[in-house]
Amino acid sequence: MTIREMAERLEATVYAEPDQLDIDLKGAFGSDMMSDVLAFADDRDVLLTGLLNSQIVRTAHMLDMSCIIIVRGKKATEEIKTLAVENHIALLETKMTMYEASGRLYEGGLGR
C-alpha cells in the first residue's frame, strides 16, 4: 500500500515530499515501545505509534523505515518534523486510535 493510500484511509494530515507518497510498503508495526519496534519491525513496515518524541524518528531511521503514523490525534512537534525531513521519513497524523488505524490499513490489504 502506498503512503498516499494510507493517508486517505486514515484521513491523515501529511508531512512529506510528493515523491514519498508513492513509496509502497508491505506491512505495519504498531507500538509505543521503541525497543519492541527495534526487535520486531521490518524496513518495509510503516510504524504506527502514539509516542511523541524524537526517538520515534531515530528508531524508524535505524530500521530504514520510510513512514511514521502518529495516532490518537497527537501532533508532531517541530523537532519531530525537522528530524523526519532530515531523514526522509514521511509523517502522517490521524485522529484514529492505533486499533482503528491498524484495522483500516489491514482491511485495505496492508500486511495481508
Binding site: D32, M33, M34, S35, L38, A39, L51
Partner: peptide
C-alpha cells in the same frame, strides 16, 4: 518507559 524505552529489550536486541 513513558519515553518508549525500558521494556527490557535493549540487551536482548543487541544480542539478536
Amino acid at each position: 518507559r513513558s519515553l518508549g524505552f525500558g521494556a527490557g529489550m535493549g540487551l536482548p536486541n543487541m544480542k539478536r
